[in-house]
Amino acid sequence: MYKEIICSGFGGQGIMVMGKLIANAAMKENKEVTWMPSYGAEVRGGTAHSKIIVSDKPVASGLFYEPQDCIVMNRPSFIKFEHVIKKNGLMIINSSLVSDKTDRDDLKIVRIPATEKAKELGNIKVANMVALGAYQRITNLVKLESIIAILKDVFPPYRHIMLDINKQALHEGVKLADEYKS
């Protein structure tokens, strides 16, 4: 098993955290992982992405440009990554902010209204968790329990009051993925 994943969106959407949760959960499941943030003169509202590799064997290089799976949380990310995802790859799209159609017919596309669902839950910031929940459900790359278990390690203590709503958002993402499938 060797998987390259890109999480992408705008600064402030929790794009780095999504990636860290996947990497940390996979590490706890004894996988080899790397996590690489995009960094630059980034600003809130600018585009951001994190690259994650999950593998059974030691990872030679954490750098890659063509992911198998891509989670896109906003439109600039959709445009940036639509054509670099590997053949027959997976794209999870935050349909609340991206309505574009893709001309790729090989991709598995899953549209999740992550931002709307997060608003419903009472905090727009957990849209990332909704998307991550959906990603977990579709790929089963890591267990949902593993993600939930490491939330408290990845979030700083002063954010721990947010643990419940994050868990809730993950579960909602799982549900949305099931609904999308059927």
Partner: peptide, 10 residues
């Protein structure tokens, strides 16, 4: 370098 500084690994 920038890669090694920014990348997270176990």
């Amino acid at each position: 370098d920038g890669v090694l500084g920014q990348m997270a690994e176990p």
